[in-house]
Design a protein around this nucleic acid. Structure first.
Length: 929
DNA sequence: GCGATCACG
DNA sequence: GACGTACGTGATCGCA
């Protein structure tokens, strides 16, 4: 048995196991054991929940102590008080009964204490443990949604509903009962409970009870002063039923001093015994969770033994598979082994238009093959049985996919890829749902963000000391470059099988590092499950109105021509208006304007800031240039490029989301970038209007309001900010009010604007210089603002100092969900260090926001399906999700999207500020946003 | 291929 | 006291 002291750093989890069983039984789809039909739905749900809680929960929320609490028998001291107590409880259904003992065994298999006690309900034991832990300053999470337990909630005690993924704290209790947790008992005593058969006062419900308590303070006072109640009916009810109410109070009050057999300290979390756990899970025939547990245990145990194999890459060992029997053999070996590296070769980098050309597999170092499927005219492939333009002998696409599909979809075979989202998309076009998966690019991303990029070439060179064959070497460059289907099979095999081999070798290196580096949760709950979600979004694409873009393009062109002529006139000569170099020479050398600055490379700086400054000084040319540039940007980057990006087959635009580019955990979007579609100016919004829904459908945009400031308020624990968000205040106005001592009502918009800039500055790792530049004020003034801000919010400065110190000590910072972001320059001196410090402050905030929206996205498909919606998620823009759905679904979609996004931090993280999501439906993106 | 510029969060 | 600075991206253009 494991024992560990309980103190303020402890976190006790108490699972209300009996209640869970009933709830799981009714809420989850019925599931029976395949071999004998034994009902095991509740057991399965219970195991999944335990696995999640024990393995996935991280950071402060990680349990240090853990127990599953059961009801022993239905007779307790409450029945002596009131013989009708829980008298109308029906017997558990037939299919559920055999599951009770199995759930107890499950708890034990996971090395969680299964606790029960004669004469007491599970709730009383939970109350006792909870109060004891709380008294020692520990945090407590009660895994239950039973309202009877809500009386235990406090600042340190929360409840967690694992099925709805909701954390329930003081606020939520208040929402439900209209009073704080301390008075929940009083409410229940008055209102009674038909489920448990607690009588209460007839005709008094939760609302009335809350009103009465609000007026009289507490239950005893209320009963003592019942005569004073104005409403005659209520007065009479309370006077007549005083005894019944008092009995009810005894019934609903949890006993928090049960003489415990097992002291609190003995509930310390311990590692489950692998053999016991796996054999239990296998006995239940839970394939997926068995695989996950085994994978985890094996890799944990393998950390020291699995040194990178001293087995240099030898391309001559690779095999080209051209017979169906040979393919079947590879598939069988992959299936038996339980994991395989997979790579697809296609004729395009764009997964939406790409055609499958071949597949490569790797089972162990140098044991890899390439299966050509759509190669044409090999032209010098050295293939003896081929002549002229005949295609080489290869397995028919249809046959090969039929052989591969069962293995690729087999839940007990792990498919490993490098950027496997791409391969998922390719296989999806052939109706193959590849699962489960691992991705070496994402493994590297969670392990090494900030250290280097995560492309195959980089990783191979860094971790395998091996340079892969450059694609150019086999396909040529420039105009003469050919697609993969035209590459000779011997070359194709070396190239393709090498990719699979390298991927597998990288996996052997990276996967065992997850646990020691403490990034398993990030990988398993934020990155890996997002892969299929993003693949789907990319395949969906979004509709754009080509005609509208075309009209805008012409309009912009005309106006640009006019501006160009004007600019030449103002300059006194013709010049290339698109050349910053020529412009700088004209403005500062020829016209001799004041205030010119030079860029790093010595050229005149002519960006919008500079030009605006010159325009404000009364010069004409700069304004013309600014206007021209605005239109030029919109035209070349948007109205023109977007038309070209429309997929001829789908008629929609399909972006590609990059998962392993942004250091902070954000996504990025390319080809085309749909995360920077204009919105800030009137002109720009016209482009957004071209993003439309199909006929009969609407676009819905849902975005987090002020998510980064909310996260800052939570992480830095700033009471003033937290309560401002709880009260729904205008946060920038509130900041201004606090700093400058002006009332929020009727505030000068300029004052608010300054406060807003400061708030952003804080998130970016503020400097007097940066703020001054942003606001166009002297640096001394900006520095004074910052001083004032820190004086008013000293917690922010403390957070910044702590974060910088942590970054310097460890070389990285973390997000609220445990993502690590390495900061290369943090140990250097000078400007590099200052830069790294600002990154250190910004990365946890930006990264935590990225984590949260990723959690929402991962849950979204299920949430939509569960609500019976046809809605599809199309885009993510950092704090915004864009959906398309039938018009009739819009209201329901908004509800589901809001709920999913607002609850996305929970249950593993209980944010101390609410998350708010604004959502709107419209025919185009501009109006929906 | 790189720097400058500017679109977004 | 001087140094260079707001955080994170991607696309386009001119120019070497």
């Amino acid at each position: 048995m494991a024992t560990a002291p309980v103190d303020k750093d402890s976190h006790l989890y108490l699972v209300d196991a009996s209640a869970y069983i009933f709830r799981a039984f009714h809420a989850l789809p019925p599931l029976t054991r395949q071999s004998d039909g034994l009902p095991i739905g509740a057991v399965s749900g219970f195991c999944n929940m335990l696995f999640k809680l024990l393995e996935d929960v991280k950071g402060d929320d990680r349990p240090t102590h853990f127990a599953c609490i059961f009801d022993k028998s239905s007779i307790t001291f409450r029945n002596e008080l009131y013989d009708q107590y829980k008298a109308n409880r029906p017997e558990p259904p037939e299919e559920l009964r055999p599951q009770f003992p199995l759930v107890r065994r499950a708890a034990e298999a996971f090395a969680a204490h299964a606790i029960e006690m004669e004469g007491f309900e599970a709730d009383d034991l939970i109350a006792t443990y909870s109060r004891q832990a709380e008294a020692k300053g520990a945090r407590v999470t009660i895994v239950s949604s039973d309202k009877d337990l809500m009386q235990l909630v406090s600042d340190r005690v929360v409840m967690l509903d694992t099925m709805k993924n909701k954390t329930l704290g003081r606020e939520e209790v208040f929402e439900k009962f209209g009073v704080g947790p301390e008075k929940v008992v009083d409410i229940q005593s008055l209102a009674g409970d038909s489920v448990d058969n607690v009588p209460g006062a007839p005709g008094i419900g939760v609302k009335t009870a809350a009103q009465l308590l609000d007026e009289y303070g507490d239950l005893e006072t209320l009963l003592a002063r019942a005569e004073e109640i104005k409403q005659p009916k209520r007065r009479q009810t309370l006077i007549e039923n005083a005894d019944l109410i008092r009995i009810s109070k005894q019934l609903v009050t949890l006993k928090d001093d049960v003489p415990l057999d097992l002291p609190l300290e003995d509930l310390a979390v311990q590692d489950p015994d692998p053999d016991t756990l796996i054999s239990f899970l296998e006995e239940m025939e839970f394939r997926t969770i068995t695989r996950r547990v085994r994978e985890m245990m094996e890799l944990e145990g393998a950390i020291e033994s699995a040194q990178p194999a001293e087995d240099p890459i030898d391309r001559s060992k690779y095999v080209c598979v051209r017979d169906f029997e040979a393919l079947e053999d590879w598939v069988a070996r992959a299936t038996k082994q339980g994991y395989v590296a997979v790579d697809t070769e296609t004729d395009s980098l764009d997964s939406i238009v790409a055609n499958l050309v071949g597949v490569s597999l790797a089972l162990s170092p140098n044991e890899a093959c390439y299966i050509p499927l759509a190669h044409v005219d090999p032209d010098g492939a050295g293939d003896g049985d081929m002549f002229g333009a005949d295609p080489p002998r290869q397995i028919r696409m249809k046959d090969a996919l039929r052989a591969l599909k069962p293995m690729l979809e087999d839940p007990s075979v792990l498919k490993i890829g490098q950027n496997i989202k791409y391969d998922l998309s390719i296989f999806a076009t052939h109706k193959i749902d590849v699962a489960p998966i691992d991705d070496t690019m994402l493994l590297s991303y969670v392990l090494n963000a900030g250290k280097h990029n995560h492309g195959m070439d980089t990783l191979s060179e860094r971790y395998l000391q091996h340079n892969t064959i450059p694609f150019k070497e086999i396909a040529g460059t420039g105009k003469s470059q050919v697609t993969f289907d035209k590459i000779a099979l011997d070359k194709a095999t070396e190239y393709a099988a090498e990719d699979a081999d390298v991927t597998l070798r990288l996996w052997h290196i990276f996967k065992p590092e997850l646990r020691p580096e403490k990034v398993t949760t990030v990988y398993e709950t934020l990155e890996r499950p997002l892969v299929p979600v993003l693949a789907r979004m990319e395949q969906e694409g979004i509709k754009v109105d080509r005609d509208k873009l075309s009209r805008l393009s012409s309009d912009f062109s005309q106006r640009m021509a006019a501006l160009e002529a004007e600019a030449h006139e103002q300059a006194g000569r013709e010049f290339n208006i698109g050349s910053p170099k020529q412009l700088g020479e004209i403005l500062f050398d020829e016209m001799g304007l004041e205030g010119g600055k030079r860029t790093k490379s010595g050229a005149w700086q002519t960006d919008a800031d500079v030009l605006e400054g010159l325009a404000a000084a009364g010069h004409g040319l700069p304004r013309t240039i600014v206007d021209w540039r605005t239109l030029s940007k919109l035209r070349s980057t948007y109205t023109e490029a977007l038309q070209a990006a429309i997929n001829p087959t789908t008629g929609r635009v399909h972006t590609s989301f990059s998962m392993a580019v942004a250091q902070t955990g954000r996504l990025s979007s390319t080809d085309p970038n749909l995360q920077n579609i204009p919105v800030r100016t009137e002109e720009g919004r016209k482009i957004r209007e071209a993003f439309i829904a199909e006929d009969g459908n609407v676009l819905v945009s849902a975005d987090y309001s002020q998510i980064e400031l909310r996260i800052l308020a939570h992480i830095a624990d700033i009471d003033a900010l937290k309560s401002a968000f709880k009260d729904g205040l205008d946060i920038h106005a509130m900041t201004a009010s606090e700093m400058f001592g002006v009332p929020i009502e009727g505030m000068d918009p300029m004052v608010r604007r300054q406060a807003k800039a400061i708030n952003f500055g804080i998130i970016y790792g503020i400097s007097g210089f940066g703020l001054a530049r942003q606001l166009g004020i002297p640096q001394s003034e900006a520095s004074d603002y910052i001083k004032t801000y820190f004086k008013r919010f000293p917690g922010i400065r403390a957070y910044m100092d702590e974060t910088k110190a942590f970054a310097k000590e460890h070389g990285y910072v973390t997000t609220a969900f445990g993502r690590k972001i390495n900061l290369a320059g943090i140990k250097s001196k000078g400007p590099q260090k200052a830069f790294a410090e600002r990154q250190a402050i910004n990365a946890p905030i930006q990264g935590s926001a990225a984590d949260i929206i990723k959690r929402a996205m991962i849950r979204m498909p299920d949430a939509l399906a569960q609500a019976g919606l046809k809605a599809r998620m199309l885009l993510q823009v950092h704090d915004e999700l864009v959906f398309e759905c039938p018009e009739k679904e819009a209201d329901k979609l908004i509800e589901v999207a809001q709920a999913t996004m607002q609850g996305a931090a929970g249950p593993s993280l209980h944010l101390s500020v609410p998350l708010e999501v604004e959502a709107r439906a419209a025919k185009n993106w501009a109006e929906a946003h």
